[in-house]
């Protein structure tokens, strides 16, 4: 099957031009995202992860290289507005600051904004808005003013606004970065549920415990892919991630350090606090038992 999004040797630079490229924000990037996948993109500030997201839905156009959406090439030719809408209809985006992406003064009006722009008939918009608000669990706030909601609620409204456009894929560009732990949890639960229902999710984040939920992790450094694969495999490579200036999940870090210090061999791919605690206690008991035995 065609991948939903495909990058081929994509380069992008904010400074400089084609003839004299300055610093590359994205350099020679090739990647594929399949339909229904949950991909997390990790990286330090300035690693090019947000630029990658903006390239995906044509906010930015690459300096060189090609991008395909569902097999259609979206680079290297003059594009009409129609082409751009086709892509943005398929690939929605939720940004970091919920305040700066809500347009209307009433929640449901804001959710309706996207479909209205697409020229969807009124009754169909009504239906989509109700569905989208149900999915994010904000139906009861439909007539509320957005500025009176909490950060997590606002971000869920923003997500509903994208869902109402019926995209195939949603990119979350650090959408949990400005939220408190409660809000972050609300938003992450929504994202996971969306993915389970078949939505392709691209999650750009700083938080490792969010990234471990993904099917695949892409770690970026200086505009290039530094590491990618199953989160368990990627995070087990603790020292390599540290080199890239990234944290690993706290549980992995603890087990890694214990293993190193005592020569234990507890598996690293544990992200759940309870399991981690159980494994460590068992190990301690085992070691003590041995000591007593001696």
């Amino acid at each position: 099957m065609e991948p939903l999004i495909k990058f081929e040797n994509v380069c992008y630079t904010y400074t400089g031009n084609d003839a004299e490229p300055g610093m590359f924000a994205v350099h020679d990037l090739s990647l594929e995202i399949k339909e229904g996948e949950f991909v997390a993109i990790l990286g330090h500030n300035g690693s090019g992860k947000s630029t990658t997201a903006k390239l995906m839905n044509m906010i930015l156009a690459p300096n060189s290289g090609d991008i395909y959406v569902e097999g259609n090439k979206i680079t290297g030719r003059e594009l009409t507005d129609e082409d751009v809408f086709e892509v943005r209809k398929k690939i929605g985006m939720v940004f970091q600051n919920p305040d700066n992406q809500i347009v209307a003064t009433i929640v449901e009006e804001d959710v309706a904004f996207g479909p209205e722009n697409l020229g969807v008939p009124s009754q169909e918009i009504r239906k989509r808005v109700d569905e989208a608000l149900d999915i994010v669990g904000m139906r009861e706030y439909a007539r509320h003013a957005p500025h009176k909601l909490s950060g997590g609620q606002k971000q869920r409204v923003a997500i509903a606004g994208v869902i109402a456009m019926k995209p195939k894929c949603i990119i979350f560009d650090e959408s949990t970065a400005m939220l408190d732990p409660m809000g972050r949890k609300e938003v992450m639960n929504t994202i996971r549920r969306l993915n389970k229902e078949g939505m392709t999710v691209i999650l750009i984040t700083h938080y490792m415990n969010e990234a471990v939920l993904a099917d695949r992790v892409i770690v970026m450094k200086s505009g290039e892919i530094y590491e990618q694969g199953d989160p368990k495999d990627v995070f087990c490579n603790v020292e390599r991630l540290w080199e890239a200036g990234l944290e690993v999940p706290q549980t992995t870090e603890l087990i890694f350090k214990l293993n190193k210090k005592f020569g234990w061999e507890i598996p690293l791919g544990v992200y759940d606090f309870d399991t981690c605690a159980r494994l460590v206690t068992e190990k301690i008991k085992e070691v003590r038992g041995e000591n007593v035995g001696n």
Binding site: N57, F95, G119, R126
Partner: peptide
């Protein structure tokens, strides 16, 4: 954000 949601002025826009 508005561009991402396909805003392109009043032409061809419907209302809920």
């Amino acid at each position: 954000a508005m561009e991402c949601r396909c805003y392109h002025g009043g032409n061809g826009r419907t209302r809920m």
